[in-house]
Structure formats: structure tokens, C-alpha cells
Write a protein that binds this DNA or RNA. Structure first.
Lengths: 350, 350
DNA sequence: CAGTTCAATGTTAGCGCTACCATTCGCGCC
DNA sequence: GGCGCGAATGGTAGCGCTAACATTGAACTG
């Protein structure tokens, strides 16, 4: 009956990782844990000599701070999540690359999620992301489910949507007008004297918006085949490919042999069009003007060089990073919505 | 002098996130926190009705578990980090895409780091990654510094290196022989009756290894320009581009006008070669055989269709994911080194 | 029917870090 | 001399979760 005092041996303690921890460093340097923490995070608050001793201890032990613990304690994970439909779509890559680069310089890390082009897995992805409590979320080119939007909102995490200009952003926004792109393309081609304008587009929502704006503008210019009909178009399934472009041009010419200009919803499609035209002996731009979208690196190097619509992905990525970092660090964001525009890069194909 | 008892009001508690926590769920469902935890992680340990109540509470509140806290407590972050030199290199993308997809199905998330093509930032990146205590790290196509290798080793985190077969892997390995690729390309082109073989290569270490193996094999076949010299080559800087390929072919033909076959270290270069050849009116493959590397999606759709060397990136990604998950879940890994090989996809250009 | 087992649940004590407040000490000021 | 101030450091109590062990009660055993 002496179940007391010394009798209760300490229960076996949880197995430690064995790794070096901050308090090991503190002990080595002869300071308290909190001072060691400050030495690493806000070194200006620590005296020179203390700093030196702590740094030496870090060096000696190869200590790497546990950011999970730090994030839990400080409620700042220094993680930013980005969601892309697919990595295979190079238009997003430039932005992601710039995003990563900018984040890294501020000490943030990028977590990447692929939503796929279907919305089914999207909610699960959103939960997985929110669960890590990132300091920000960058959404690229997806229409997220209502459920997902709600979750994001409720989480209170800064969100930047990109590649589009919606009237009802979840939070912040860096994008451009797809309608504007479609209209500008139509204006450009007709200013070049083209009279039978057509489009070849991926079937994603944004590409369709460009296509429709293009079609409407063509109508306004009075440039339709037989008065009043829409501009000819072929829709291919996303992701867009070179092969898709080739087939699409073949189909287009079957139905509308007199088309003299094509606006493609990606440079891949445009490359396919160039190749198919070449295979058929159609001269470009004499017989057919071709215009791409995205201004991929290869556009300038094709023969003929491809006229394309440039979206400054680097700027999108940088801007998104800056918006998120500002919010994460509690600075107010003056312009939560940013239209970065687009520009036509005129080369030889149109 | 009564600084005692009731006098010490509870110090102001740390500001809570305001978010729903597991114990909120537990309270709502009338169980203890640990039971709620089990309901979410190992539902088979919880009775049907308890499970239902907990699920209802989760549903009602929109609770999303804090994986930082979970990772800290369980020492399993369910995060896997991948390091790529650059996202702009599409060869890696296929593997990354497959990696993400496979990880997601097992409940893991991908964290992405870009090392750039220079090693300077690499160590900082490695530390940032280790700091998050991922359950695994996948390295794609980099030669990491000795310092970095040591850190990785010391961290005890499972590591998979990919895209190469080194005799001294840090841990696990999924790759193929670059030497084998170079030799196979030389064999293939000479089997096609080509006699003046050349290469156009990026300047990264692996591409150079392919190039050298190719050159040696050419020597063995006795196919050099003027007895004993190496196979002609042009080296372009990474990342490889279409424009780089065009210029390289121009240079190559300037110096060695009788070259009749080119092995390119990427499909981008090969596309550039195709375009430059077309611009110069060189017929392919009659006058010049062209072979790419990577078998990018566009290769089949070019005109002429591009012969290329296929690396099964999807399989690399899946294998890497499986290796890491196995290790993370404590299962033994029978084959820590996996050679996934390569294959020549013969099309029209060679 | 005491003894064993097992399924379901609970208690406690951290994981490694940082927020919050407190303390100490030297310095300049009136 | 007393006071205020700011720089440097420390103590304590969590952050939200789960490992490790403890407890309970019902079902089963011989």
C-alpha cells in the first residue's frame, strides 16, 4: 500500500529524435534557450560576444532549427503554398519560378500542390495545405469549388489568386484580362489586313473567355465568313500540345479553307500550326498568319519566329510573393488587386 | 508583502489563433482529445458511434488539423521535399509530377526547392529543407556540395537521388547510366549508316558525361573525321534552348560541314537543329540525322518526327515516392538502388 | 467464477520552439 | 540621490498535437 513517492519511477520518456535542439545550443553557449532563439532570429537583440558563442555552438553541432516547432510556437510557418493545375503547363512555370526565387530571399519556402484539371481532388488539396498553416497561398489558374473558397476564407490565410481578374477575389489578386487579350488579338490581326480570323483554343475556362472575346470583336469588325456567323474556331482539350495544334489546323482548313489568320491559345498549339502548315506547304505568314499565347522561350527561335502574346509571369510571381510577405509581416497592402496587363510581341508569323 | 495566492492573476495568455482545435472537437463530441486524434488518424481504433460524433463535429466546425503540431508531436511531418535545378527543365517535370501524384495518394505533400544551376544557394536550401523535418528528400539532377551531403546524412532523413547512377549514393537512388545513353546513341546512329557523328550538348555535368561516352564510342567505331580526333561537338550553356540549338548547328556546320548525324543533349536543342536545318534547306534525315534526348511530348509531333532517347520520368517519380514512403513507414527497402534504364524512340529524324 | 484477453477510451507528459512578461544593470538626467 | 530609460537576458507557460502507458468493462476461457 505504499504506492507513493519514490515508488513511481518516471514513465519511460518519449523517444527523442536524438537531434540537436535549441536548448543544447543554449547550454553549450551558457545562455538560456530564449537567448539562443533570439540570436538566430533577431540577432540585433543580442550582444556581440553572446552572439559569437552561440554561433560557434551552432557551427560545432550542425544544429538546424526545427521549423515545425518554431512555426507552432510563433504561428508563422514561413511556408507559402502554391497551387497549379499542372506543372506541364509552362505558362505557370515562369511565375512559380519567380515566386520561389522571391520567397527564398525573404526566408520563405514554397510548397507545391497540383490540382489537376479536375476539381475533385481540389478540396482535399486545400485541406492539406491549410493543415500546414502556410503564411500564404498562391492560386494559379483554377476555378476553385465554392467549398474550397469558403475554407480558404475561414482559414484567415492570405490568398493571392493569379492569372485572372475576377470581380470577387477571395483576397488578393494578380492577373490580367482574358477578355482584353482576346480583343487585342483580334484587333491586331485585323490591323494586319487579315479578313478571315479563326481561333484554336484549349478547353479551359480562361482560354474560352479569350476565344469568345476574340469572336465578338471579329463580329464588331464585320469580319465573318458569311455575315453574322461567329469566327471559325476549333477547341482542343487541355493540356494543349503540338500534336493538338497540328490536328486542329487540319480540321480548321477542312471546314474553312479560306481562313487567313489563327489565334492560338498557347504557343504549343501555335507551334503545331506552324509545323502542320509547313508540312502542307502553306507559307507563313503570306498565306496564314499565326499568333500564339504565352510567349514561351522558343517562340523567338522558330522559323518563322512566332508572334505571341506575352504575359509577364516573372512579374506575377514576384508581385504575389511580395503581397504575401507583406501580409505575413503585418504590413498593410495598399493594392490588393493588380492588373499586370499583357503585350503583343510581334515577330514574323503574323 | 502579501504577494501571494490570489494576487498573482494569470498572466495574459498567449494570443490564440482563434481557430478550431482538436480539443474543441473532442469537447463537442464528448470525448477526450486523444480519441478525437485517433478518430482522424486511425479510425479503426474507434467505435462506430464515437467516430460518427467526431466526424459530425469536424464537419460542423470546418476543423482542419494542424499538421505542424502533429508533425512535432509524432516526429512525422508527412512532407516530402524535392530539389530541382530549375522548373524550366521539362525532363524533370514528368518525374516531379508523378512524384507529387504518388505522394498525394498516400497523404504526403510535396515541398519544392529550386537549387538553381549554381551550388552557392544549395546549402542554404538544404538547411531550410532539413529544418522542416520532411519525411524524405528527393534530389533531382544536382551535384551537391560535400557540406550538403554531410548535412543530409547527419539529418537521418531518407534521401533519394535521381537521374544518375553514382557509385556512392547518399542513401537511395533511382537513375540510369548517362554513359550508357551516350554509347547507345553512338551505336544507334552508326547502325543507321552514319559516318560523321557529332554532338550538341548542354554544359551540365551529366550531359557532358553522355557526350564523352558518345565520343569514345565513336572512336571505337573508327568513325572520326581525320583519324584519331574526337567526334565534333558544340557545347551550349544550360538551360538548353531552341535558339541555342540553332546557333550550335550553325557553328557545327561551319567547322565540320560534312557532319551527317547529331546527338543533342535535349529535345529543345534538337528542335533548334531541326529548325535551323530547315531554314538552311538541309533535308532531314537524308542529309543530317538528328536525335534528341528526353522524348518530350512534342517530339512525336514535329515534322519530321524527332527520334529521341526516352527516360521514363513517371517511373522515376513513382519509384522515388515509394522508396521514401516505405522508409517513412518503417518498412525495409529491399532495393535502395534502381536503374530504370532508357530507350531509343525511333522516329523519322534519324 | 476467477483469470485472461481485448477493444475502447482516458491521463499525462512532452515534441522544440517562441510570446509575454520580468529582471537586472549601467547610464544620463534633473 | 532618485528616477527613468533602454539594452541584454531570463523564467514560465504555452502552441496543438500524439506517444506511452493506464484504465475500464465486456467477452471469453477452462
Amino acid at each position: 500500500m505504499n504506492m507513493q513517492a519514490d515508488d513511481r519511477r518516471p514513465r519511460r520518456s518519449r523517444k527523442k529524435n536524438g537531434g540537436v535542439t535549441l536548448s543544447d545550443i543554449a547550454k553549450l553557449a551558457g545562455v538560456s534557450a530564449i537567448t539562443a532563439s533570439r540570436a538566430l532570429n533577431t540577432p540585433e537583440q543580442v550582444s556581440e560576444e553572446t552572439l559569437a558563442r552561440i554561433r560557434a555552438a551552432v557551427e560545432r553541432t550542425g544544429y538546424v532549427p526545427n521549423l515545425l516547432a518554431g512555426g507552432l510556437a510563433s504561428n508563422r510557418s514561413r511556408l507559402v503554398a502554391a497551387v497549379v493545375p499542372s506543372l506541364a503547363t509552362p505558362v505557370f512555370l515562369e511565375a512559380i519560378e519567380a515566386l520561389t526565387a522571391t520567397l527564398v530571399t525573404y526566408g520563405y519556402q514554397l510548397m507545391l500542390g497540383q490540382s489537376g484539371y479536375n476539381n475533385s481532388r481540389e478540396d482535399a488539396l486545400i485541406d492539406a495545405i491549410i493543415g500546414r498553416r502556410p503564411d500564404g497561398i498562391v492560386l494559379t489558374g483554377i476555378l476553385h469549388s465554392e467549398q474550397g473558397r469558403k475554407r480558404l476564407h475561414a482559414s484567415g490565410i492570405p490568398v493571392v489568386e493569379t492569372w485572372d481578374l475576377t470581380p470577387t477575389p477571395i483576397d488578393m489578386l494578380v492577373g490580367f484580362s482574358h477578355q482584353g487579350v482576346g480583343e487585342a488579338a483580334a484587333d491586331f490581326l485585323s490591323s494586319k489586313g487579315r479578313r478571315r480570323l479563326a481561333t484554336i483554343s484549349g478547353d479551359d475556362e480562361r482560354a474560352q473567355r479569350r476565344r469568345k472575346a476574340f469572336g465578338r470583336r471579329v463580329l464588331q469588325h464585320g469580319l465573318t465568313e458569311e455575315g453574322g456567323a461567329e469566327a471559325p474556331d476549333v477547341v482542343v482539350s487541355t493540356p494543349t500540345t503540338v500534336g493538338g495544334g497540328r490536328q486542329a489546323l487540319a480540321r480548321l482548313l477542312d471546314i474553312h479553307p479560306d481562313v487567313d489568320a489563327v489565334f492560338c491559345s498557347s504557343d504549343w498549339l501555335a507551334l503545331g500550326v506552324l509545323i502542320e502548315a509547313q508540312a502542307r506547304g502553306l507559307s507563313i505568314p503570306a498565306r496564314l498568319a499565326v499568333m500564339g499565347f504565352g510567349d514561351h522561350a522558343f517562340a523567338a527561335d522558330l522559323h518563322p519566329a512566332l508572334t505571341s502574346m506575352r504575359i509577364d509571369g516573372t512579374r506575377i510571381g514576384q508581385t504575389a510573393a511580395r503581397l504575401i510577405i507583406a501580409r505575413a509581416e503585418g504590413r498593410p497592402v495598399a493594392e490588393p488587386v493588380c492588373d499586370i496587363g499583357f503585350s503583343i510581341i510581334e515577330r514574323d508569323s503574323a
